[in-house]
Write a protein that binds this DNA or RNA. Structure first.
Lengths: 355, 355
DNA sequence: ATAGAATGTGCAACCGTTTTCGTAAATGCG
DNA sequence: CGCATTTACGAAAACGGTTGCACATTCTAT
């Protein structure tokens, strides 16, 4: 029914195999036949059937992606949209397309991936950090199927190609920024500890405090969801403390927005009474009131580089495993103010105990 | 190399065709063999090769989507992410997957679509309203290829299945809301007139004014991009007018955010000095200061219903063309305030001329 | 008991490519 | 000019499924 390679071959008066070679731009084809065949293709409006092609050549020029299910919080976060954008750009540049599926639960997701992989729909996979990952990763490694993960894998990070930020350093710097501003009572508002991002960033936070000889206070470390609500709850708790912090580091802009709005409701002025440093630097952060000082982690690049390295792996299976670190940069806006630093011994009296 | 249908057949001691029928859950297969075959599949960890399957059966269980190129403004807008979410959900529910490509330009996009369609990669297409559409649509119609568009098509809307809001009514209502609040000087901040959304909403705006006998003032009608910057520019212009409006209808939340921030810079208080009604009701709108009164157009449903009807068309080519209208609803927040209505004749003196 | 229908399964063609292998013609070399 | 390469292309076998048709049973009705 549709025009096939045979039709082209017939019109150009060559064998189908020759047409195939012309498409693949094979070297051993004379310029003359090339022209002849191309003209025939043009004339018939021929476009190769990708399924047949994939079947025969065992490759699809497609990378797979499992999306968070639509109920998932991640989807709400501009982070996702941005990383998708990077992936999209990376695929496009390399003439790859993207194949997406969703799973409502971990097992659904797992099955979806199996269908993609065994069904030969995709040549490789990009994994967004999540909790299912583990089973998935071991499955993919067992099959020696190309994949890269965005974020740091929980296990065997050295053996898995992944692209990530240097989250501990980034958070250390963010915290030091606040310390330089004179802050000593700095609270940390993070996401679930099941996520490596949180672990790393919490680590960076502690490193900064330790380095500055500031005691770490457990009440100042809170965990919520990567959502506005998460930020709101955290702030309520913090503001109920006897020793209110003078500044906050928040691991996500959306959470920070929640923080801001709750602070506003409580009548606490930002940055006059409390300073806020946030993370991710998505569009929102410059639109809030006040605009957020936020750590830009180049989300787009996270997606872009992940795609690039995935394609490298696909096209050269011997490619060594890599860890790619995307640079970060603090973007200063108006959510922080200077603070006359408390002497450390006074902090102690205030009930700070070292962890 | 991988396990094929033949392997399963051999193990279950039946013909490959029987295995195929078991997979398809064909009626003419006895329960006994079904069990036998399923056990064999299980045992071998068999998963059908989708390419082979697609090739043979001429169907992919996949719907195609062309994404805005990563530079595109649309991508910045949460609208996109939300509609994608709806599409994702719709596909998933019907056991379809999604295939994405991007084009950097109109011709690239067009070619990408051709590759998808002729390459038989997808069973149908969802089109997000944009300007290329026209060539695309006529191409798809010529080939009788299933597609639905989200938004209203520029041409032949009656002959094309599409899902949209009743944008003129929605905007009429939004404007009337302001009128009920006593406002008479109402400005319209919209996107490009090349977009049907803008056309429809502008129409609704005018209808509302006409119905209330309020003259339409050209200086009050502005067009910018669907971005924050678009809103910012528009406001600057409006505030430079001798007759400042007392309220604004803005066709997109992101624009409205720009409006808000510019207003803030100019020291104009919302809602005390100027009221703002916005559109789309994305997450942002409740996080702004003040929270935006915004028309919820159920973006998720736009995507979801589009997918549903596309799949209906795919599975029954005789499905009649439909126009699906997604309901809207004004969500009141704190960006509007009452205003003592000016008598209409006073408006006239203020230089209002009827359009 | 037997024609005819219903049921269960196998055979083989087909979906539209890619790719290995083979061969004829063209070329290089002594 | 004869022989060994190289070059340009064709034949046919995969790739891994689906499906129309034929055939053999078993069931139902007469």
């Amino acid at each position: 029914m549709a025009v096939t390679i045979r039709d082209v071959a017939k019109l150009a008066d060559v064998a189908p195999s020759t047409v195939s070679r012309v498409i693949a731009n094979h070297s051993r084809i004379s310029e003359a036949t090339k022209r002849k065949v191309k003209k025939a293709m043009e004339q018939l409006g021929y476009h190769p059937n990708q399924n047949a092609r994939s079947l025969a050549s065992q490759s699809t020029q497609t990378i797979g992606l499992v999306m968070p299910s639509s109920g998932d919080v991640v989807f709400q976060n501009p982070f996702f949209s941005m990383v998708l954008q990077g992936i999209s750009e990376g695929s496009h540049k390399n003439k790859y397309a993207m194949y997406l599926t969703t799973g409502k639960s971990d097992v659904e997701t797992f099955e979806a991936v199996i269908r993609m992989v065994q069904g030969k729909r995709v040549d490789g996979l990009i994994l967004l950090n999540s909790k299912v990952e583990d089973k998935l990763i071991s499955y993919l490694r067992r099959r020696d199927f190309p994949f890269v993960v965005i974020g740091k894998p929980f296990k065997d990070a050295e053996e898995i190609t992944h692209v990530d930020n240097d989250n501990v350093r980034a958070m250390r710097e963010a915290t030091e920024y606040l310390i330089d501003y004179g802050h000593r009572k700095i609270a940390f508002i993070g996401g679930s500890l099941e996520l490596m991002v949180t672990v790393d960033r919490l680590d960076g936070y502690k490193q900064a405090l330790n380095k500055a000889n500031i005691p770490i206070k457990n009440e100042y470390i809170l965990h919520g969801e990567f959502l506005r609500e998460g930020g709101q709850e955290a702030v309520s708790e913090l503001m109920a403390l006897e020793q209110r912090p003078t500044s906050l580091v928040v691991v996500d802009d959306l959470m920070a927005l929640g923080v801001l709005s709750t602070l506003d409701e409580l009548g606490v002025k930002v940055p006059e009474e409390i300073s806020v440093v946030s993370f991710n630097n998505v569009l929102l952060s410059e639109m809030s009131k006040p605009p957020l000082t936020s750590m830009d982690i180049n989300i787009f690049d996270l997606g872009y580089q992940a795609t690039r390295s995935l394609i490298e792996i696909i096209e050269n299976r011997a490619e060594p495993t890599k860890r790619i670190i995307i640079p970060h940069k603090l973007v200063e806006r108006q959510s922080c103010s200077h603070q006359v630093p408390l002497p450390l011994d006074e902090l102690k009296e205030d009930g700070f105990e070292n962890l």
